[in-house]
């Protein structure tokens, strides 16, 4: 049947799949909170359930990612350069991978969290989750940015969101240092391997926050083009 030449000009937008991908990333990231709750309660059955949920989300995200790559693989004219979209997507992909690594370490090493640091630790985790959620809201602004041609008032608004993201990242960094010194104080009571794992998970969590900030940074680059 006749293909309408005008409509055949419009290729699939990468924006919706990118948002979909980010939604899976954030959803997986949010599961870290119940996961650490389960770990604190040594409920390893529950932890395994959560791990497999995270793992499924990672797979969903991967298939969405392939989808976006297909839309970007064609010879398309985009409002911002193709590499920015690809890099944003790659940062998002790294985030969900990082989430899964944390979940793997916690679940299969049955990593218990020392009573002394539980309170601070939980709030650190939730801060890392919040920063990812904020990165998601920045990604969700892509639609509005497109409406406004990636400039003007809307762009300024998004830039402000990204600056806030930077501030939050600094705060989580402080929190991490505080937590590290707390772990340092109770190191003697922990088995050496447990201590190493604890430090490792801490640094992965702060990596997660950093990746969220980098998603924002990629969008900032789109705006400055």
């Amino acid at each position: 049947m006749t293909m309408n030449p005008i409509l055949a000009m419009f290729a699939r937008s990468p924006i919706n799949p990118i948002k979909e991908h980010m939604a899976a990333v954030t959803k997986g990231c949010k599961l870290l909170i119940p996961l650490f709750d389960a770990a604190s309660a040594s409920d390893w059955e529950r932890a395994k359930e959560l791990y497999s949920e995270i793992s499924t989300l990672k797979k969903t995200a991967d298939s969405v990612k392939r989808d976006v790559r297909c839309t970007l693989a064609q010879n398309v004219l985009l409002p911002v350069s193709k590499t920015h979209f690809t890099e944003l997507l790659s940062k998002q992909g790294q985030s969900i991978r990082c989430v899964r690594e944390i979940a793997t370490a916690v679940t299969f090493r049955e990593m218990e969290i020392p009573k002394e640091i539980i309170e601070n630790f939980t709030s650190f985790v939730s801060e890392c989750v919040v920063i990812t959620e904020r990165a998601q809201s920045v990604v969700n602004e892509l639609d509005e940015l497109l409406e406004t041609g990636f400039k003007g008032r809307e762009a300024q608004l998004v830039e402000k969101m990204i600056r806030d993201l930077d501030v939050s990242l600094d705060l989580t960094e402080d929190k991490k240092i505080e937590l590290m010194s707390q772990v340092r104080q109770i190191e003697d009571q922990l088995s050496p391997v447990s201590a190493v794992f604890l430090y490792d998970v801490l640094s992965r969590l702060s990596k997660l926050a950093e990746l969220a900030e980098q998603c924002g940074a990629k969008i900032e680059v789109m705006l400055s083009e």
Binding site: M9, A11, I15, N75, L77, L78, F150
Partner: peptide, 12 residues
């Protein structure tokens, strides 16, 4: 003018 999400250059 950066108004359209993706234009198919091969179609054009």
């Amino acid at each position: 003018a950066r108004g359209i999400a993706a234009l198919n250059m091969s179609t054009i």
